[in-house]
Design a protein around this nucleic acid. Sequence first.
DNA 1: CTGTTAGCGCTTTCAG
DNA 2: CTGAAAGCGCTAACAG
Lengths: 343, 343
Amino acid sequence: MRKWTISDLAREANVSKTTVSRVLNGRPDVDAETSARLLALIEDVGYVRSARAVQLAKGRANVVGLLAPFDTSPWMIEVLRAAMERVQATHFSLVLHSFPHSPAEMARFADQLNNGSMDALMVVSLQQEVPAIAKAAADGLPVVMLNDYGFNAGLADIIPDEAVGIAEAVAHLVAVGRRRFAIIAGTPDFPISATRLDAYRQAIRKHGLELDEQLVIEAPFTAPAAQAATLALVDRGVGFDALFASSDAMAVGAMRALKQRGLAIPDDVSVVGFDDFASAEFTEPRLTTVHNPLYEMSARAMAQLLDGVKANKPIEKSEEVIGTHLIVRDSSVPSRNGAGGRG
Amino acid sequence: MRKWTISDLAREANVSKTTVSRVLNGRPDVDAETSARLLALIEDVGYVRSARAVQLAKGRANVVGLLAPFDTSPWMIEVLRAAMERVQATHFSLVLHSFPHSPAEMARFADQLNNGSMDALMVVSLQQEVPAIAKAAADGLPVVMLNDYGFNAGLADIIPDEAVGIAEAVAHLVAVGRRRFAIIAGTPDFPISATRLDAYRQAIRKHGLELDEQLVIEAPFTAPAAQAATLALVDRGVGFDALFASSDAMAVGAMRALKQRGLAIPDDVSVVGFDDFASAEFTEPRLTTVHNPLYEMSARAMAQLLDGVKANKPIEKSEEVIGTHLIVRDSSVPSRNGAGGRG
DNA sequence: CTGTTAGCGCTTTCAG
DNA sequence: CTGAAAGCGCTAACAG
């Protein structure tokens, strides 16, 4: 016999398909002897339930979709790790979807949203309005966004509380004696650029200091761009002893520029980044940075989604915030320690 | 009407389900007018085919599974990128599976292998025998391994040709004037440790030189371990001017150690790594390294798998090799350039 | 505790 | 060019 089905088992054991199904699903209302006999047979012939048939009959696929920018982002691995761990503890599967680039891809994705191939959806850093998603959510699909920053109104969104970690960073810088704060801010096309800049400015104020606007410079979120910007910043001639780069990649560029100008890190300038990607361990010196809680956010999103599926109800609009915190490494603590220092 | 089905469409349009199905599948043998009318209706009511029903009827899920170590490996993103790109060009989906850690997880995975939830499987860096996979493959499931190094006999495996890139690296080191070669080798529990060490040794021989066994030291594949090993190596007092670290992470540790001992990179010692992960751009100096062709390997594997599914036949045992090459950055070319140099 | 009878929504011979 | 009928393999009332 090629592949056993529930009917084969039923015939072989002289019971009905229903009974077999009950045993398969561990229902209590089956005679112990019958159950044991069936289980033995199942084991014996190596029967395994057809996932497809179950899905059709149950009207559910036990699949959560993950829509994310796999093409670019190295930090996606953090999101994946968390999602996988949560999913693996259940009977769900995780299926990946890249952002649809062409209209054709968008159409296919919209179909997937509605053809029952997923029971829930997690969307990472979309940051653009996609009506098909909102519609699916309105039709009852549990959807949680990560880092959407309000682009898709009405959907649940989970974002990091960047200000907390940045405030920690500033407090740390003050504690090690820094007073002249500079920042490589991101470009205005990303919402996070302003968020991080504002948080930095506010945090500095809380310490009775002021962010000198001459020490603010914008750059794209890449190492080379930040390097150029930092060079320009140093060349303005306005001294600074603390530099916050709006991302780890930018921090790398900034550190290169500082070294180029003969400034020692951290002795002349303390550098702090944002993200805490794996690479932060590999910079020289190792980078002090604000941990971006992608893992935690993803875990949280997945928990909400799985709950949503189980409860069989959509997820309400909400904006959940996950705290960030500073990871102190070697790029920020000068050896000759200033004011509040402990050196 | 809540959710349109093929029957609803048939009734509404006064045709049979069969005809609707034909139109849905773009079969040519349908009256043009009927077809147009149906298409209009479909568009009109926003009908979308149930993926689950199609899958059950067709006996195929159009899913390729990806079994991989998501918990640890940052380079997985490369594998994912390639796999997603290939998959997105088709009507397949990619579903993720983490390595089963407990027997229970293994049992669940083995079930998935046989319950029709995937039509093909790609396995990354498993490097341990998993009979369930071999069995599924024998039963007709297309399976391709990446970096399995023969642990699962009888299955198709794709591996990098590390020797090519390492030979390039050695040639490069010779060209910039290096003659005293050292290596931080991996520990023997990983097959790649010996592969890389041997390739290095052979390459050096091809240049009429010899790898001094005093300049070989083993360490786990991490930065701290490599740092300690490098310190020990330097302290042996046997001079060297070129150091090959068996991974990028190890190279980072090695560079730290060299700096600790007052050695300049690349002027005193040229450092070359292996992997070319994103972090290689972030080291100081930027790391010259052998590119690990994970992306290419994954793309190749996916192509084979999709072919296998389309042709509806298993994939034969094979060992495909993908070339590697050297990426020259700043850690290897000394400013005062030696022998074959071009400075 | 167990079986009967309908589906789940689509595909596919086989006739016409 | 079109339709009837029989599945795909399992679940789920509803009776007993």
